[in-house]
Write a protein that binds this DNA or RNA. Structure first.
Length: 275
DNA sequence: ATCCTATCCTGTAGGC
DNA sequence: TGCCTACAGGATAGGA
C-alpha cells in the first residue's frame, strides 16, 4: 500500500477532507481535515503496518488498515457512494483518496511529522523486518526468556513490526517450525530459517501486492496475488504441498494458526538438510 | 515484565 | 427463505 500510494498521491494537493464521524479503533480527531487541507503530499512512509502519508509543513497522516480497511484511489471519484467510507480526501486536480473500513478497526489521525515516533501507536513498535532484515541471532535474542509461542512472538508488533496472521503461519511452515513451540526454545538453526523465510515471504507478498482471500484489495480495487503462494493459511484439511499430510487448523490467542503436523515437527526432514 | 482474555465492529459462509 | 452460529487480514486494556 505504501508503494501504491507513493506512486499515486505524492505531489497532489489536498483540497478538502470529509470524515464519516464514526469512530475507528480510536476516534478520528476532528482537527484532521484542517491539518491536511491545502497541503501537498510529499512522501509516503511506513512503520510496521502503519502508513505515514507526509505532507508539507510537517504534517503526517498516520493510518492503519486494521482487519478490513482499504485505501482506494480514483482519478475521478465515482458518483455512487460506497458504504463504510470514513474519510474522503479530495485533491485539487479532481482525483481522490477514500478510506473504506467496514469493521472500523483501522486508525486514522494527523500528527506532527517530528512527533510521529512519539505517537503511542508507533512508539511501541519493534524493529521493522523490511527496513532491516532480521538475522537468526537477532531473533533469538529478542525471544530469550519468553514463554509465549513462536507464533505469538511473530504476531507481537512490539517485538517484530509487520508480520500478520497469514504470514506468521506461512513463515513457520517454510521454516519447518511448529507454531506451538515456546519462542525461547528454538535452536539457532531454527531461528536462522525463520529469519530467512520471514524476509522471503514478506518480500514476495509485497511484490504480489498482498494476499486477497476476501476483502483486501489494492489501491485500484484489485486482488493481491500472494494467495496463489499460500502453503498452509486457510487450507485446513487440504494436503500439505510438500508432504501430503492434511494441514491442521488450531487456535492460538483467538487467532487461527495453520500448519503441517509432519513438516513442522522437531524431527521433520527438511529439503536441503543433511541426513 | 509477561501472559492471556475479552472486546471493539460488520459482513459472510455454512448448517438447519 | 430465514435464523442461527462461527469466523474473518488487528491492536489494546485490564487482570492474573
Amino acid at each position: 500500500m505504501r508503494r501504491m500510494l507513493e506512486a499515486h498521491v505524492v505531489g497532489r494537493r489536498v483540497r478538502a477532507v470529509r470524515l464519516s464521524g464514526k469512530r475507528l479503533r480510536d476516534p478520528v480527531p476532528r482537527a484532521t481535515p484542517r491539518m491536511l487541507a491545502g497541503r501537498t503530499i510529499v512522501a509516503v512512509g511506513r512503520r510496521g503496518k502503519y502508513l505515514l502519508v507526509s505532507l508539507e509543513d510537517g504534517v503526517t497522516l498516520l493510518s492503519h488498515l486494521g482487519m478490513s480497511g482499504r485505501w482506494l484511489f480514483y482519478l475521478e471519484p465515482p458518483a455512487a457512494r460506497l458504504p463504510h467510507v470514513h474519510a474522503c480526501i479530495a485533491f485539487t486536480d479532481g482525483s481522490a483518496l477514500w478510506y473504506q473500513d467496514p469493521r472500523r478497526f483501522g486508525l486514522l489521525r494527523a500528527v506532527r511529522t517530528e512527533a510521529v515516533d512519539l505517537d503511542p501507536a508507533i512508539a511501541v513498535l519493534g524493529p521493522d523486518p523490511i527496513a532491516t532484515p532480521p538475522t537468526g541471532p537477532a531473533l533469538a535474542a529478542l525471544a530469550r526468556g519468553l514463554t509465549l509461542s513462536v507464533k505469538g512472538f511473530l504476531l507481537d508488533q512490539r517485538r517484530i513490526a509487520g508480520v500478520g496472521n497469514i504470514y506468521a503461519s506461512e513463515i513457520l511452515h517454510r521454516a519447518g517450525v511448529d507454531p506451538r513451540r515456546r519462542a525461547s526454545s528454538l535452536t539457532g538453526a531454527e531461528w536462522a530459517r525463520v529469519a530467512s523465510e520471514l524476509a522471503a515471504v514478506l518480500d514476495e507478498a509485497i511484490r504480489r501486492f498482498g494476499t486477497t482471500f476476501s476483502m483486501y484489495r489494492t489501491l485500484w480495487n484489485e486482488p493481491g496475488t500472494y494467495g496463489e503462494k499460500l502453503r498452509v493459511y486457510d487450507r485446513a484439511a487440504e494436503p500439505c504441498r510438500r508432504c501430503g499430510t492434511p494441514i491442521r487448523r488450531i487456535v492460538q490467542g483467538q487467532r487461527s494458526t495453520f500448519f503441517c503436523p509432519r513438516c513442522q515437527s522437531r524431527r521433520a526432514a527438511r529439503p536441503g538438510a543433511r541426513a
